[in-house]
Design a protein around this nucleic acid. Structure first.
Lengths: 137, 137
DNA sequence: ATATACCTTCCACTAAGGGGGAAGGTCAAG
DNA sequence: CTTGACCTTCCCCCTTAGTGGAAGGTATAT
């Protein structure tokens, strides 16, 4: 299959496929006599794997590492488990941060909508953020 | 005060300050006869405001919008409330996505550590991800 | 006079591509 | 034979929020 068909089947752009090839994430494909890239099912599966791993939050660099194990014929399980563990604790941390931030924003936004608050030069919300920030330093 | 002092006082790099200036987030500062940037308290406060807003998850572009109100002498409260509301719902969505992803990763990682699972060509974890991905399409 | 610390400008780089175009080759149908 | 869709390489610019370095100017202390 040619690049356009592969791209459409896997829901990516031809640009992305050539980009993955350029960074070594996809192997140099076969070529037709006229120079067109020719892909097979293996390539489609690899692209699907890349997309899955990306959906799991892995960077293209991490994915490249996992695929390198595959290509060397080694078992990437240990490495994958490591990557996933790091990913999970990273997500836990980010979720905690976001929750704290969201709660703070809700608070501020309620005040901004309410319109009450002390007199301020420009806007009570901004001054408030200002003060809270300076107080927390 | 010179750029280095301002940077250290506010906990940013001189690079960041010049960058903010280049995108119009900070005004072009006064210059000493030798061409050094000369800042005052107003600039320090503005930088503090930028940092606070950034900590609240606003992009430099959004911050620029808020500052523009200030600079026009208008009350940015309504605009700020809008931005904050959007920020909250955005965070809610992202927290939900991250939680779902984290749960999926924990599941996978537990399997990767366990080592059990069906026979696979390379690694059970990867094949599993593979299968789940294809099943969800 | 020189060491150093600080400042200036400008250019390139990051992740992960998106977007567009130029200039050309190829393949199928009508 | 030509049209249109597809492909090739190469090129440059855009995004976020800066970071890093090079080449050179300035301030201050010794």
């Amino acid at each position: 299959m040619r690049i356009g068909e592969l791209a459409e089947r896997q829901g990516v752009t031809t640009k992305a496929i050539r980009f993955y090839e350029s960074i070594g994430l996809l192997p140099d494909p076969e070529r037709t006599p006229s120079g067109y890239r020719a892909y097979g099912e293996v390539d489609a599966e690899r692209l699907a794997f890349i997309k899955t791993a990306q959906r799991l939050g892995l960077s293209l660099d991490e994915i490249k590492g996992i695929i390198a194990f595959r290509d060397r014929g080694e078992q990437p399980c240990g490495y994958v488990a490591d990557v996933l563990r790091r990913q999970v604790s990273d997500l836990d941390r980010r979720i905690r941060e976001m929750r704290a931030l969201r709660d703070e924003l809700r608070h501020l936004e309620a005040r901004a909508s309410g319109g009450e608050g002390p007199a301020s030069t420009y806007c009570a919300v901004i001054e408030h953020v200002h003060l809270e920030d300076r107080a927390s330093e």
